[in-house]
Amino acid sequence: MPTSSFLPIKCILFDLDGTLLDTAADLVAALNAVLCAEGREPYTLAQARHTVSHGSIGMLELAFGREQTAAELARRREVFLDYYQANISCHSRLFEAMPDVLAALEGDNIPWGIVTNKPEYLTFPLLTALDLHRRPRCIIGGDTLAVAKPHPQPLWLAAEQCGVAPQHCLYIGDAERDIVAGRAAGMKTLIAEWGYLNPNNEHHDWPADGSIASPADILAWLN
């Protein structure tokens, strides 16, 4: 939690999947499309939710194991991504209380942005479908730069586009790479406990500045 040396936060940056948006249902549906094509039983949302922040590869490794060949993984990933791209916003939405948080930030003229490892060709259509594409001060995708999280460069670019020094930025995410990237960028970091965390509670060992249970806690933490 903040200490006496805590610098004022002037910008909030969010991870996308599992932090700003609840995209799990659409991503699990994409996984199940692959399973169905191979005659396998589908996963329930509860069974696969904790892997969503690890992207298509992590979800496919959950379903098929890490022993699948590179060719098998590439073929399955193509099916996964094709299905997901065509059905990207069927169930995805802002997490509960997040609309009020964004409205409060905008009302106080605090810029906010998105830094995700999701590629731009999926990120922008998703945000557009949810009518969110014009609101963030910055949108940094996984392929906006040559490097992605946990490298700090995407966060530095986000801070630059928001016009705020990194030490005055707060980055919120639900994966260890988010916290590692935020700290490397010189930002404060918070763990989004409402996100797609592993049920073994390993996130308690991540080097974050804090951990919050609900988006509503963001404003309380800032105050």
Rank of each mutant, 00 (worst) to 15 (best):
E120D: 14
V115F: 09
L122R: 01
P154V: 07
N32V: 14
L132R: 02
V147M: 04
M98T: 10
L157V: 12
G55L: 06
R77L: 13
L73V: 11
G142C: 08
V115D: 10
P111Y: 13
D143V: 03
A74M: 09
E38L: 04
L60K: 01
T44A: 02
V28F: 06
I114D: 06
L145H: 10
V34K: 00
V115L: 03
E38R: 03
E120M: 04
G142A: 06
W156I: 13
G142W: 15
D26M: 00
G142V: 11
S56L: 10
S92Y: 15
R40E: 15
T116S: 03
G39R: 04
E72G: 01
L73I: 14
G55V: 07
P119G: 01
N117D: 15
E96N: 04
R77E: 15
P150S: 01
E96Q: 04
A104S: 13
L102K: 00
P125Q: 06
L45Y: 08
C36M: 09
G65R: 04
L60D: 12
Q85F: 08
A37L: 12
G55Q: 08
A129Y: 11
S53N: 05
G113L: 07
I57E: 13
A129G: 03
K149I: 11
D82L: 03
D82V: 09
P152Y: 05
A71L: 13
L102Y: 12
L105I: 03
V79S: 12
T144M: 03
D131Q: 09
Q47W: 07
G107V: 13
D100Y: 07
H50S: 09
E106H: 02
L127E: 15
L102V: 09
H151Y: 13
S92A: 11
A30Q: 11
L122G: 02
I88F: 07
L155D: 11
Q153K: 05
P99I: 08
G39D: 15
E67H: 05
W112T: 03
D108Q: 10
L126V: 11
A70N: 13
N117I: 12
A25D: 14
Q47M: 04
T116H: 01
L81P: 04
Y121Q: 06
W112R: 00
V34P: 00
F124N: 06
M98P: 09
G113R: 01
D82S: 03
A97S: 09
L62I: 10
W112Y: 05
E96D: 15
N32G: 04
A86W: 11
G141N: 07
T51A: 05
P154H: 07
F95S: 02
T69R: 02
P136D: 09
E41G: 01
R93H: 15
T51I: 08
L132S: 02
